[in-house]
Design a protein around this nucleic acid. Structure first.
Lengths: 187, 187
DNA sequence: TTCATTTTTTAACATTTGTAAAAGGATTCA
DNA sequence: TGAATCCTTTTACAAATGTTAAAAAATGAA
């Protein structure tokens, strides 16, 4: 997915503002299994995914819990780093080789102060991420695991092909054994 | 809590910008049990809570699920209405008589286009709500009900006094019976 | 205060989910 | 191809949570 498409799907910028923003972005690429972000560090970059798929995970006691997947067109960001300048929850691991667009957040913060269109783009970006996060929270509070698995199957069938079930079970908040039982019942 | 304090705790505005924003805000008051927002409507106002406490709930089949509490200094908003102009999840019921600051969102949208400080205030507002939502999602995915109850007890002890346990159990995602068992174990 | 109502806890049993281990499939790479 | 590894399902049992009902405690109104 092209950077222009990713940026303008958030909020369409005037050409001059887009050019400013684009000049701060560079393309990078990393292999499968690469650890892009670490939970104990303050991340000063955000990434837009051109190709590939990633997962965010954190540790609870000794256990790894996967809590987010990102694919083409989505944004890899540690919200706590971005907003509060503190280490975030997420370790981000690449599940496939990825091509990414990289943007340094300090440059973005400068643009927010200078350009009202970019400030409003940043507002829309936060708002859209907020809606996504709220939807995940609501789904988790209101739906059973079976319902959320079915929704995932319907809305993102490619994820089931691209990601092993252990990670998906963790993401859904159950053990792999339990997810297996759910899959057996649906058939 | 005064409106100036609520607005500037999000992001400190220059005086002129604050005056502009404040001129769009009026004070209103409603009694306990009043239904301020309905889930099936598009809400065109947001409220800042001066005094009182409210809950957001939705229906899952026949059951009511409480998924948010708001108190002094917090913002009552239907994010889906505000951001996507669609009916949101939340019914908002007042659990105490409340004094509120009311702001029409269409006026706010106008100010976003005119004033870069207010645009950045709006960005910070969305970002802070995002952090809060993310924290709730992470807590839900990573902590047991007992841990989340203890955190609530520690961080918001007043809520346990002001809100009945049925609503709190629902908020924590368990039955009241189960919450009672948790409370019995902690003692 | 006293009675009625609401809230919270307790109990008994059913259901769901977790744990640990093993078996069955699928994939990779020499 | 074949052996090793990884992924997924199945089984048996344990632990946690839900359901329903009743008892106890707290609250509120006359």
């Amino acid at each position: 997915m092209q950077v222009q498409q990713i940026i303008n799907q958030i909020y369409t910028l005037p050409e001059a503002s887009f050019a400013q923003l684009k000049s701060c972005i560079k393309e990078v690429s990393f292999p499968k299994k690469y650890l892009l972000l670490r939970a104990d560090t303050i991340e000063r970059k955000i990434y837009f995914i051109k190709t590939g798929i990633v997962r965010a995970y954190a540790y609870q006691n000794e256990n790894e819990i996967t809590f987010w997947f990102g694919k083409e067109g989505e944004t890899i960001i540690s919200m706590k780093s971005y907003i509060m300048n503190q280490p975030g929850y997420e370790n981000i691991e690449l599940l496939e080789t990825c091509e990414l667009y990289e943007l340094k957040t300090d440059k973005l913060q400068e643009l927010f102060k200078q350009d009202i269109h970019i400030a409003n783009w940043g507002r829309k970006f936060a708002e859209q991420e907020l809606i996504k996060t709220e939807e995940r929270l609501i789904a988790r509070q209101f739906s059973t695991t079976a319902e959320r698995y079915s929704a995932l199957l319907k809305n993102h069938p490619d994820l089931l092909q691209r990601i092993s079930l252990g990670y998906i079970a963790s993401y859904l908040g159950v053990t792999q054994v339990s997810l297996s039982r759910i899959r057996a019942e649906i058939k």
